[in-house]
Simulated assay, not measured.
Amino acid sequence: MAAYFAHETAHIAENAKIGKDTKIWINVQIREDVKIGEGCIISKDAYIDHAVQIGDRVKIQNGVSVYHGVTIEDEVFVGPNAAFTNDYYPRAQNPEWEVTPTLICEGASLGANCTVVCGHTVGKYAMVGAGSVVTQDVPPYTLVVGNPARAIGKVCRCGQRIPEDGVCPKCGFVIPE
């Protein structure tokens, strides 16, 4: 018996590695050579492309497609219908196609319907607002919004916006220099 839960409608490649206590819900497809850590939630209608790496305690909401070349570190939140690209110069037919990697770092939060254009890194505990389009790297602990996404402030590990003094009013966390 598996150490994870998979809904009966989920399609999981035989060689995918799924961590303990992970939950895989309705109509999820997980392709070959995928590695998903422990304690994750992969919600309804998600698609995880081949060779994708997902850390521990990651939550991927409904309708998200995570394409080849995307790496998601521990404790990342990916909101409903967030999108990733993996081809910087997409064409229907391109014999010279190369995957352009994307990295979502530990603790980052991606809002609903945001898009992360390939080749960029979303830093540790950064927050991408709903509907934003990430077209450049997002530094750690940075809040970005809009299209293209632009920095409007800093956020704490707990998700609260940080005032200019750099100290979280909720938990006292100080953003590292």
Rank of each mutant, 00 (worst) to 15 (best):
A82H: 05
D165Q: 15
G63R: 04
A2I: 07
V145G: 12
I36K: 03
A13K: 08
Y89M: 09
A108L: 09
V78M: 06
G69W: 00
D21Y: 11
G129T: 08
Q136F: 00
E164V: 14
Q136A: 06
P90N: 03
P169H: 11
I30L: 14
C156Q: 10
D87R: 00
V145W: 11
D45K: 09
G123V: 11
P80Q: 10
E38P: 10
G166K: 10
Q136Y: 02
P101A: 11
A126Q: 02
F173T: 09
R161T: 12
P176V: 09
D87P: 03
P176Q: 02
D49S: 13
N81L: 08
T135C: 02
P80R: 02
K59T: 15
G129I: 12
A16R: 02
R157V: 09
A112N: 06
K17R: 10
W25S: 15
R91N: 14
T121L: 01
I60M: 08
R31F: 06
L143T: 03
G159S: 11
P139T: 15
D87H: 03
K44G: 15
V145A: 06
I30T: 14
Y89Q: 01
G19K: 05
V117C: 02
A108R: 07
K23S: 04
P90I: 02
G119A: 00
V78T: 11
C168N: 15
I60Q: 07
G55N: 04
K35H: 09
L103R: 04
C118K: 02
D56M: 03
A10C: 06
A3N: 10
A16W: 08
V52M: 04
V78D: 02
C156G: 04
W25K: 11
K17M: 07
I18M: 11
T135Q: 04
C158Y: 11
V99G: 01
P80A: 11
A3D: 06
R157M: 13
N62C: 12
V174W: 02
M127F: 06
R150A: 05
M127N: 14
T121P: 00
A112W: 02
Y89A: 08
A151L: 09
V138H: 00
H120G: 00
G159H: 14
P90L: 01
Y47W: 06
F84K: 10
H7P: 03
D21V: 15
D137M: 01
V128A: 01
V133P: 03
T85R: 00
V167R: 11
I104A: 08
I104Y: 01
I41W: 14
F173A: 13
V76M: 07
G111Y: 10
N81M: 06
R57L: 08
G146W: 09
Y141L: 08
D21W: 05
G172D: 05
E164G: 11
A126V: 06
P101I: 01
I24Q: 10
V64I: 08
E106A: 04
I175D: 12
T9G: 12
A126D: 03
V138C: 00
F173P: 05
A151K: 14
Y67T: 10
D21M: 06
D165G: 15
D165C: 03
C114R: 04
V145L: 08
I24F: 13
F173M: 08
G37D: 15
V58C: 13
Q160S: 06
G153T: 07
V134N: 01
